[in-house]
């Protein structure tokens, strides 16, 4: 069985590189998207995606809009999503939870916590 695939959606190249570096070194395969719309397209095109790490504040389509969009259209069960954002507002956390998010990480992320979250949601890299 191949390595698990994680999709990173963030408009920052640097954040995508940081996350990618952390996860590829643990054996995960990475796909990247720079906003929610590209993320939706990627989820629809890649059934192998095991989980998504998604920023909130992005141009074109926000992370919450991404969540609400894939909730209605993704194959069942929808791909699990963890939000990775600078925002720690309880209101937004509640909205994301209601929209189906599985977790929330406030940037800047700690590499070991990020990896723990991915292992818990997606499983180990090649399981």
């Amino acid at each position: 069985m191949g390595n698990k695939t994680v999709l990173i959606i963030d408009d920052s190249i640097t954040v995508r590189q940081q996350v990618s570096l952390t996860l590829t070194s643990a054996g995960y395969h990475i796909l990247e998207a720079c906003d929610g719309q590209e993320g939706v397209d990627c989820v629809r095109a890649h059934a192998e995606i095991a989980m998504v790490l998604c920023d909130l504040n992005m141009p074109r389509m926000s992370g919450l809009e991404f969540l609400e969009t894939i909730k209605g259209t993704a194959p069942a069960p929808p791909v699990p999503v963890v939000i990775l954002t600078t925002d720690g507002s309880p209101d937004l956390i509640g909205r994301a939870k209601r929209a189906g998010a599985k977790g929330w990480i406030v940037k800047p992320f700690q590499a070991d916590l990020l990896l723990a979250a991915v292992r818990r949601i997606a499983g180990t890299s090649s399981s």
Binding site: T86, G88, D91, A101, G103, W104, I105, V106, F109, A116
Partner: peptide, 12 residues
């Protein structure tokens, strides 16, 4: 309301 601190992780 108190914001979640930077670096925090919560699961739902």
């Amino acid at each position: 309301a108190e914001a979640l601190k930077e670096g925090s992780l919560v699961f739902f």
